[in-house]
């Protein structure tokens, strides 16, 4: 089995470089048998794509998915710069 630091590095690169994900804003933290995904993506489909890519690179790890779909609501209020 690949040791944890290398597996983390492989996951990090896969998430950033695989065309299905290309996510620079998602973290994969490996802890024992688990990999925690965190960060924000642009839509629901991308959460599923992420899990698929991670599962390919690390099929033995249990995925814990904390990734959120980013809000596209209108802003509440504004900041005054003076």
């Amino acid at each position: 089995m690949t040791s944890e630091p290398y597996l983390s590095a492989h996951l990090h690169r896969a998430i950033a470089e695989d065309p299905r994900t290309a996510e620079a804003g998602v973290r994969a933290t490996v802890r024992g048998d688990h990999v925690l995904l965190s960060g924000d993506v642009a839509c629901e489909q991308r959460r599923a794509d992420l899990e698929a890519v991670v599962h390919e690179v690390a099929p033995d790890l249990h995925v814990v998915d904390d990734v959120r779909v980013v809000s596209v609501a209108e802003p509440e209020g504004s900041e005054e710069l003076r």
């Binding site: 804003g25 960060g39 924000d40 642009a42 980013v70 809000s71 596209v72 609501a73 209108e74 802003p75 509440e76 209020g77 504004s78 900041e79 005054e80 710069l81 003076r82």
Partner: peptide, 24 residues
């Protein structure tokens, strides 16, 4: 000079808004 990082995961909305007074 004020700097603002407006990456969408940070501002958590479609856009954020700043009101800037020209006399600053």
């Amino acid at each position: 000079v004020r700097v603002r990082n407006v990456a969408q995961p940070i501002i958590r909305s479609a856009y954020t808004v700043y009101h800037v007074e020209p006399m600053v």
